[in-house]
Structures are given as structure tokens and as C-alpha cells.
Design a protein around this nucleic acid. Sequence first.
DNA 1: TTTCAAATTGAGACCGGTCTCTTTGCTTCT
DNA 2: AGAAGCAAAGAGACCGGTCTCAATTTGAAA
Lengths: 356, 356
Amino acid sequence: MDQNPPRSTSVTVADVARRAGVSKATAARVLGGYGTVSDRVREAVTAAARALDYRPNELARSMTTGRSGTIGVVVGDIENPFFSLAVRGITDVARQAGFTVILINSGEDVTAEKAAIRTLLAKRVDGLIVSPAKESELDHLQEAARSGRPLALLDRGSEALAVDTVIADDRNAAEGVTRRLLALGHRRIAYITACDTSDHLFRTPSDINTGSVRRRVEGFLDTCREAGLAEMERWVHVGASSPEHTRRIVTGMLRASGRPTAIIASDSVIGLEVFKASRAIGLAIPSDLSLVSFHDADWTSVTSPPVTVVRQPVYRLGERAAQLLVERLNGEGMEARRVVLQTEIVERASVAEAPA
Amino acid sequence: MDQNPPRSTSVTVADVARRAGVSKATAARVLGGYGTVSDRVREAVTAAARALDYRPNELARSMTTGRSGTIGVVVGDIENPFFSLAVRGITDVARQAGFTVILINSGEDVTAEKAAIRTLLAKRVDGLIVSPAKESELDHLQEAARSGRPLALLDRGSEALAVDTVIADDRNAAEGVTRRLLALGHRRIAYITACDTSDHLFRTPSDINTGSVRRRVEGFLDTCREAGLAEMERWVHVGASSPEHTRRIVTGMLRASGRPTAIIASDSVIGLEVFKASRAIGLAIPSDLSLVSFHDADWTSVTSPPVTVVRQPVYRLGERAAQLLVERLNGEGMEARRVVLQTEIVERASVAEAPA
DNA sequence: TTTCAAATTGAGACCGGTCTCTTTGCTTCT
DNA sequence: AGAAGCAAAGAGACCGGTCTCAATTTGAAA
């Protein structure tokens, strides 16, 4: 029975109905699991379906029901451990709730992000989870929200947008880290992020469109200011968007006179590159240079010295976002919720007193 | 004009047609970009569509065309850097070719994998890329292939299945690594994999259902045998499926008398755990213990000592798989192709002569 | 036995596109 | 001028399900 040639035209309810000797409507009731049917008919239809190897066409089903059973996810880069872990959280919840996930990388590019959302909307996803590249441009998000399909924001929110949002308490984390470094005598503290500005220079936090990072930078700057350090803006470096860029930035910074005595890396990919670059230059961590990285990537505990990090509940970030979305998909329209998950500073050995 | 209430019922071709004063068929021609239309009509329809903010319904389109513009991807665990990188390769190619990706994690569980494929087939994906958990069970893959939708296998193939396959030359890599260790005097060499058997014991390579790993183990064992080492089977450890399991296995192994002098880790997640465990026990790498890991994860170059690894072209693995699939989706039925990508041993400093 | 509501089943419209088949209107060739 | 050829537009079927509504059965109450 394996010998039937590749069945190009698939079996439909009508086929099953014919074979079972009932009407299409009745067969559909059995196959779709709705309405009422007698046991005898149910068995006949089930048997016919099995004999014909009937496979429901979800597309057709979605067509009439209006629900596609999919949620669209737009992240910066699935290759980044941060996102792959968050996506894991999302897919776990989604599957549990009976949804599948369509994944699109934006590459942190707003144009790509817009296209992605448009595509997903066209495919009639039931809901969206987006990690917006820029908070300055949110027409497309607004539009998505207005299309009637629920939207949840991941890791980056915007107060201007009344949608479900799950973020970490980045500002708080940055403040804690900065305070710690200040207490150890550091005054030249650099902050490095992948976010970029048009001229690759940083002036004020509002230059930074990625919400999570902006909040961190604000926390960093404010804490410095409170400690009496002014003009720390010049220690914020943007544009570390690839390992090469990062290396160039870090190397330049560490080779300059008046180099920083401490560096805060905005994610683990950057942190890794800082680690490599400082070693390449011959600076010892932590005696010459203290390092703190965001994201408790698995490798950070295994280097020499192990790296002090801000542990973000990344998996839970994705998980919660998906939960909010699913709830909204099922339940009725409640108000937009904003969830802030706590971070934790994991002190390891990459931070020490500032060198004299 | 932003004030219209959330439009629950969307704009259709018929609406656009009405507004433009043409027939539904004509409007569809313009909107769908097929057939011939006069410039005047085209403009009228375009204008109407813009005015109404028309959004095509891809579902409906897929319904008739039979093409959904999606490819389904089933991987073990997106959280694993190996897969997230491969998926990155897949999505890049897919997007380029105009496809979106539906992602499902199997958790390396065959039952889940079957369900995943069934779901994807029901959603009428145009093609599938699967990294099969087990090569022993491939009915569901066979079925998928028979359903007429192209299938490509990623990282794990089966000669029994005539479908496009992209793998790395795992056997070769394992042979090379083993030879290197043997040359350095190692005789007690352990191989650790996440794959598992029913009784968590390894007897023969055929116990291992994951193709890539089986080929490696075969390479390992054969090379040992050629060197006159018999019964190396007892050095193959299965079931390192989580950090905790791995730690337990490694710790037990290293604490035992006659502990291995070298360990080959089947992926970077395991390699990391071996690194941690040996350090926790107080064994020095490489003087007490040599370590080689599969997958050139980013952190492996930054530990002390940096870890010798087998560099697999992971991104290209995904990329090629997607390419094969897309070609088959466009072109006509050619024979199944099997692509084997070369690996490379990156010698760093975690391998040394066997201790006396 | 008659009556009436509830349970079953059938017929056919519908979702929003695509696509085939016609009809209509011009242009062009002889 | 008449026929042929072709572009442009319309009508309506179709994809494979769901769902409404009406028709038929069934079963229990009267």
C-alpha cells in the first residue's frame, strides 16, 4: 500500500464523506470535532478518513475560522544567545497553547522589521511578539496593534505604545553595576553597545533607540552624575554591531592614553570581544581592567577570570511575553500590561579596584 | 483618519474592486500582479487599494495556489548554539528566496518530532528541513517526503532515505581527533554525547540513532582499533543530555581510578560542562586531562587554556540545506543530493601529551 | 397512538483569493 | 470593408474547510 504514486491532489472532507456515504457537512463535523454526530456515523467517517489517509488542511480551516494558529516572532538575531534563549521560552509556551511560531530576523534593521511585520500580518498570524529595533519608529507596530491582532513587546518597550510588554529592569541593573564600579574607585568607565547612531557618536541617551539599552545608559549616566562625575557621555560607545566593530572600538579605546579602567558590555557577544581584545593587548582582567557584561552567557563562568555579569531572566522574558499574548488571544481585551522582570548581578572575578 | 475603530473585518479584493468601479477579477489581477490590465485601470485599482488600506490575505492566496510560502524547520533545540546558528543560515536563505520559516523544537524527541511534522504538513508548508532525532525511525520522514512536499535533512542523514541531505564529515573529523590524541600517547580516551540509549549504556555504534554522532563514534572506535586498542566501547558515554547529567557523568568518570586522560565532547554544551567539571575536581587541562570539543563555539577561544575544537561549518550547513530545498521547490525533481561539508580541527591549547 | 422538542443530517453559502472561459473592443492585414 | 488577432475586462467556478438553516428522525411525554 506504499505503492500509490505520490498523491499530488490531497484527500478532502468531500472525499471522506463520499466514501463514508454521508454528506460533506457531516463528515466535516466528525473530522473537525464540532457539532453533534451519531456514534455510527462517527465511526464510519473515522474509518473512511483512515482508509483514505485524510489530512486536514489547516489553511482552509484558518480561512473560515480566521485563526491561523500561528504567532509571529520578530527578533534581532536568532544567532545571538539572548534571542535564541528567549525564543525558546516563546516556543515552549506557544506549543503548549497550541500555536506554532513563525520566526523572522530583523537584523536590528527597522526596514526589515517593517517588512517582517507586514509579511506576518499578511500570513494572518494570530498575534505578534516583536523585539523592536527602534523605539523611535513605531508606526508599523501601531499599525499591527490596530490591525486587531494582539502584539507583545519583548525586552524593549515603549511607553508610547499601549501594548503588552515584558522587559527586564535594565536601568536598575545598570545603576547597580555602576555603583559597584564607582565604589571600587573607577572613574573612567566605558559602556559599549551594539546600538548605533547616524554618525556613530553618542551624545545623549535619546540618541539610542533601543529601549533596553537606553534605560541602561541612563542608569549608568545618572549614577555617575550623582557621584559627581560629569560628562560621562564620552565614555559611551555605540556601533559595536559585529565582532570586528567591537574589536576595533575596544582596541582603540584601550590603546588610548587615559584608557578606561572598567568596561560595561551591553551583551555577552560584546563582552566576549572585550575579553579577547584586552587579552590581545596584554591588559590583565581585573587588575588592569574591570569587566562587567550583560547577559549571563554560559561561557562567562568558565573564563579566567570568570566574568561578573548581569543575569537577565532571558528565558522567562520570552515565556512571559508568550503568556501575555496567549492570554490576550484567548481572553478578552484587558488593559495593556507591562511586566518588569528582576535582574541580578552575579559577582565573579572580573571586577576589582581601579588601578592606581 | 486614524480614528476609524479597529477594523475587525478586513478589506478584500471585492471591496477594492467596487471602489475602483471594476470587476473583482480585474482588481485581483492588479493586486495579484498577474494577467494583463490597462494602465488606467491599474492606477484606479491601486488608488482604491491605497485608500482602503487593502492588505492581501496570504492564507486565501495559498488556498488556491497551493503554495504557502513557508518552510517548516524542525530542530532539536534552538537554544543550542549549533542549531541557532544553523537556523540563522536557513532563515537567511529562506527570506532571500521569499519564504518564511516556521520553527519547531523537537527536544530531540521522536514523538514530538512526529507531531511537529504532522503539524507542519497540516499547515501546508512548501517544504521541510528536519534534523531528525533518530535515524532508526523515519516513517514520518518517509511520509513527509511522500506527501509531495520536499524534505531536506540537516546534519543528520540516512542512506535509507532518498532525500536531500547536508551533513559534515563527522567520521573524518573524529578520526583526525582520535589519531591526534593517540599520537600524543593517550590510551584512555572518553567520548561523551547527549544521545542516549534505553539503559543509558553504550555497546555498539548502532545503539546511537543520531547519524552525525554515530559516524563520529564509529570513526573514534575504528581509529582506536586500528591502533591496536580494543574494547574502547566502554569509553563511550551516552546520556549527557543536560548540564546536570553531563556533570554527573564527567565527575564520576574523572573521580574513578583509571580515569581518562583525554575527553572528546560531542558538542560545545557538553564541552563546556567537561571544562567546568574538571576544574571543579581540580584536574588541570591539558596536563592532567586533554579536551577536544565538537563545535567551535565562540567561548572556546577565550578560556584558559583555549579549547581545541572541531570546527563545523554550522551556518553553511543550514544555508546549504535551505538552498537545496529552495532549488527543489523551484526547479523540477532532480535526484536526491547529499552534501558533505568539510570540518577542520582547530588546535588550541587543551590537548597535550598523555600524563605518565 | 399522537405530539413536540431534541438530536441528526443534508444542502448550500461563505471565507478571500486565483484562474479559466467568454465577451467586448480595437488594431491590422488583405 | 470584412476577417483575423489580440489585449482588456467581466462572470463565475474553485480551493477545502466551517457554519447556518432547514429537513428528517428519534424518543419520550401526554
